[in-house]
Design a protein around this nucleic acid. Structure first.
Lengths: 127, 127, 127, 127
DNA sequence: GTGGTCTAGACCACG
DNA sequence: GTGGTCTAGACCACA
């Protein structure tokens, strides 16, 4: 479970944490029943305040991906992977939808949009 | 020059103002040499704080789309439409690029991305 | 909008804040479109740290009772009262259900349960 | 003496243990003079930390339901069943009282409260 | 002025 | 050891 935080970025640190744990669950690095790193451990390893980590974890719980067992820590819930995926899917599709609408409204043609799709998918794996 | 602001939305009010003026110039509702509504008038008509309008206008000036004529107000500069369009284009393409990368990284297939493109462009004119 | 916090109670301060705002909406002291007291004002008046208030307000937003307009404050959303009521109702019914099950499992008779109902409702308005 | 613990639930594990032993005494599964399982045995069988079991047992002793016989273990005291029942009764009645007050304060009618009572008692034995 | 984010450090119940 | 709550005080973008 590698986590990397960039505090200079516009997206809040706690949100980056949420996203990375979600990604970890999505790709199977964290499985149902696994414990996620404790607040303090995560805080130490990513050099972030513990409260910030706690806030992120609270969000994960609210999303229903993780449950807290008092005195023990946070555990990935059953079915978290599927829930993650559908969450990601929704979010990503909504984003693309918005972006495409902007493209269209800016007067670009469908052909140009398709070319962008080509380019991104030809580019392969990286971000 | 109709402007509509939704203070509920995540995108800041001043940004919504910028976007709508840019759109107005793009589609020719505002032409080179035209005056744009004064800060106070705009503030009154769209029910927004005057400081917010001023900030938006500062951005428009910084983008090189309008110029201040002292004592007279703000005027759309020569060549604004073209500049607008290229700005829009860049911005929109960057947005689509990011959205597509997210789609790809979320594991959706190219086919699904293409279907979204289809859907948006079939939907026709509105936003 | 009177709010009273008892920091000695077992229920967390931020939760007490949430509950009291919910109650305020429920009984119509706060109506759709109204602003709720700013974080800092509330913090001052109830003698609680601003972060604690902010946490409570975050919960209210998550419950869909309130929306934030950046730079302006938090506003009660349309339909908040109904949502409040159904939330309260659910919570309260679940609590009663649990309590009744405990009563039954402890071997008390239905008659005794009914007597308790009588007593509480005879007692009238107070808490 | 079957004991089942759900570490997921909001009620603390040690409290669940107390409750289940109390229930066992109440229904006669544990009688005066019986030994209750040793801390270690209980810890092993219900998969719980031994300190947690010890804490629960301390509570049981404090409630006057069991007594320590040094070197032998914990034994259910004479009159435990009656004491249990009155304890349960008190606790359960207090709980119902609170729940009913909440119901009333939430504006539900007495009739609705009565219907809930009906429903729970019609449902019969299980939890 | 508003809320949002982050840090630092304290205390608590639970295991 | 764990997470949860609370305080105090800082900085930011937005209106």
């Amino acid at each position: 479970m590698h986590v990397h935080i960039d505090p200079t970025q516009a997206v809040p640190v706690f949100q980056q944490l949420v996203d990375q744990v979600v990604a970890g669950i999505s790709r199977g690095a964290l499985r149902a029943g696994d414990a996620i790193p404790s607040v303090r451990e995560m805080a130490r390893t990513v050099r972030v305040n513990a409260n910030t980590v706690a806030k992120a974890y609270r969000d994960l719980e609210r999303l229903g991906l993780v449950e807290t067992r008092k005195g023990l820590g946070l555990y990935v819930v059953e079915g978290a992977r599927e829930r993650c995926r559908s969450l990601c899917r929704e979010r990503v599709v909504a984003g693309l939808d918005t972006a495409l609408a902007a493209v269209r409204d800016a007067g670009l043609t469908e052909v140009e949009a398709r070319e962008l799709v080509d380019r991104v998918f030809r580019r392969g794996g990286g971000s």
